[in-house]
Write a protein that binds this DNA or RNA. Structure first.
Length: 569
RNA sequence: GCUCUCAUAGUUCAGCGGAUAGAAUAUCAGGCUUCGAACCUGAAGACAGGGGUUCGACUCCCUUUGAGAGCACCA
């Protein structure tokens, strides 16, 4: 939680402001450091907001004398503004950061309640594209954000390795590529075959029965196809593991559709028995959700085959067996599945599950050319984005550091490239559709990951050159009297609130913006005041400690985004 | 056809119902013999249209227009 804000809140509470207090930052620094808006309290006190502000100002002046934190209180129309003592603010924050380090800002709203987050739920035999990339960035960040808010969060993945797309891919493989030696990128090869088969079937719909046969054999675990299935499936899984690993993403458990489909069928039988599910048109098993305004959910095909909903019911059982007392289950998918998840959650509720279920449907990622469809092959692949951004950053790094070793250049470029990618894919609010812009993704100026990393590298350089052990020194915070120094410390104090906001709204973009604002606040300080060139050694020391704190909080915010920093760049 | 989501500078995005709607980028004008110019300073530039609720609306409600998505055997 924010430390400084809390102290100001206490002052207000002492003069009988009993409702919940929100402190904001005034639009201009001349107007003070923190503001209290009197609109709500005005209703309670049955006075005009302007009168309330004046009254609060008077009360504080009368009863709160010689407060070491608050220098001045002044009413501005309906606002009461607080002018804070720079030395107290900087000392409080710098010491708190030094003490708590990576834990600075952490909250405990979750009280160690168990939350399961499921992402990116990708498919074998199909490619990983920019849509998945967005999913992975958001899921990884939410995992860290929930953890920092005191939840015990378990990231899991649910891979569909048994759907119709697999049948289609294997059919195409046998029909057009039998006996071929797969290239190095085996997973990419499968994805291409899947696309090729999809397009071919559009022109030759009469061959669809062959695909159905392949799918039926697969579901029956027929010997003629099983080996091919397990081999190709593993190619996909190996490739996904590699991608997740380089993205810094870990899942505690991965579930597979193959393993839960049969269980789901049993749940459907039970729902039938209970009368929750019924037999619908053509003999399919449905659940009528009309009275919830959710149409009809399809639980089983008329030929007895399972559907996505069938497997998800089985997954719910397995998940609840594995994780007892789940308080919340978060599902992260594209927004096109919003309606589906409303249906799923309703069916699960009817089946007796009562934990909180949350679906985050992030907006679609499209290309400048239009909508992506893997069936049509017009997708932007994860690998291509990664390589393009990496090449660009590698070029920049090589130019800037001709004296570095090849390995140092490539290692650094790799971290910067992933920072750029993750920052780019997390900067938008999740519900918004986004157009993937390759130029923006590879951009390293302005509101980007590299900008924030650069700020960290700058501070590293200052700390390195100073050769001062500021950690144990006695610091004269009273020397930190510049407005930029106070502003920087006050912004660090906001971190806990940002963390809260990010988890409440399931929105990592709050942290993205914060990390950028903090880096910008540091750069503002940096250009106006010199650390190493400060007038006295005491001031140098104080500014060094302030800089190190700012660096720590920037690192903390980047950590929540899944972004690593570099020493130099 | 029905349902859901979205609409803010040229472009990409921020804006718990509250102070003069913030950034980034592109454009123009500046700043390195000074802690790292992947940086900084300045200029110009926006709430899709129309109603309503409210002391107060980018924000809530209705409507029109535009964009995206979903709607029975796909995932």
């Amino acid at each position: 939680m924010s430390i400084i804000k809390k102290q100001v809140e206490e002052i207000l509470q002492n003069i009988d402001v009993t409702s919940e207090i929100f402190l904001s930052v005034p639009p201009k620094s001349e107007m003070g450091d923190l503001a209290f808006a009197c609109f709500d309290i005005a209703k309670e006190w049955k006075m005009s907001p302007v009168e309330v502000a004046k009254k609060i100002e008077m009360e504080i002046l009368r009863f709160v004398q010689d407060d070491i934190l608050v220098n001045k209180v002044k009413a501005f129309g309906p606002y009461v503004n607080f002018f804070l003592n720079s030395a107290v603010v900087t000392e409080t924050i710098v010491k708190a950061v030094a003490k708590e380090k990576i834990k600075f800002g952490a909250n405990n709203f979750g009280a160690q309640k168990s939350v399961v987050i499921e992402y990116p739920s990708n498919n074998t035999h199909k490619e990983l594209h920019v849509g998945h990339l967005r999913n992975i960035c958001i899921g990884n960040s939410l995992t860290r954000i929930f953890s920092a808010n005191g939840f015990k969060i378990t990231p899991i993945n649910y891979i569909n390795d048994f759907g119709a797309h697999v049948g289609k891919c294997l059919w195409g493989l046998q029909k057009f590529h039998a006996g071929e030696k797969p290239p190095a990128d085996k997973q990419g090869w499968l994805a291409k075959i899947y696309t090729e088969a999809s397009i071919y079937l559009q022109d030759h719909p009469e061959l669809k029965s062959e695909v159905y046969d392949t799918q039926a054999k697969l579901e029956a675990k027929d010997k003629s196809i099983w080996k091919l299935f397990t081999t190709t499936r593993q190619w996909s899984l190996d490739s996904f593991d590699k991608s997740f690993k380089e993205m810094g993403v870990k899942h505690n458990i991965t579930f597979y559709e193959q393993d839960v489909k049969d269980l789901g069928q049993k749940v459907v039988d039970e729902l039938l028995k209970k009368g929750i599910a019924t037999v619908g048109e053509g003999g399919a098993i449905i659940v009528d959700l009309e009275k919830y305004n959710l149409d009809i959910g399809l639980l089983r095909k008329s030929n007895g085959g399972g559907l996505y909903l069938t497997s998800d019911l089985g997954l719910a059982i397995v998940k609840n067996k594995k994780f007892s007392r789940v308080a919340e289950s978060i599902h992260l998918t594209g927004s096109e599945q919003n309606f589906y998840f409303q249906q799923l959650f309703k069916v699960l509720a009817l089946a007796g599950y009562d934990y909180k279920m949350t679906h985050i449907g992030y907006g679609l990622v499209s290309t400048p050319a239009g909508k992506m469809a893997s069936r049509l092959g017009n997708v932007v692949l994860y690998d291509d984005v990664r390589d393009a951004v990496y090449e660009k950053v590698l070029g920049e790094t090589t130019v800037r550091h001709s004296d570095w070793s090849k390995k140092k250049i490539s290692d650094t470029a790799r971290i910067i490239a992933f920072a750029a990618i993750k920052f780019e894919f997390l900067k938008h609010e999740a519900v918004k559709n986004v157009v993937f812009d390759p130029i923006a993704a590879a951009s390293i100026d302005g509101f980007t990951g590299p900008y924030v990393l650069y700020t960290v590298a700058r501070i590293n350089s200052i700390v390195r050159k100073s050769k001062i052990k500021y950690q144990k020194a006695k610091i004269r915070f009273d020397l930190l009297s510049q407005p930029e120094e106070k502003a920087l410390a006050l912004l660090m104090d906001e971190f806990g609130d940002m963390l809260k906001k990010a988890f409440k709204n399931y929105n990592p973009s709050v942290i993205v913006k914060y990390s950028f604002d903090l880096a910008k606040a540091y750069n503002d300080f940096y250009t106006k005041h010199s650390v190493l060139g400060a007038d006295s050694s005491e001031l140098k020391l104080a500014r060094l400690a302030l800089s190190a704190s700012a660096r720590q909080v920037i690192i903390n915010s980047l950590y929540l985004l899944g972004i690593e920093t570099v020493d130099e760049m």
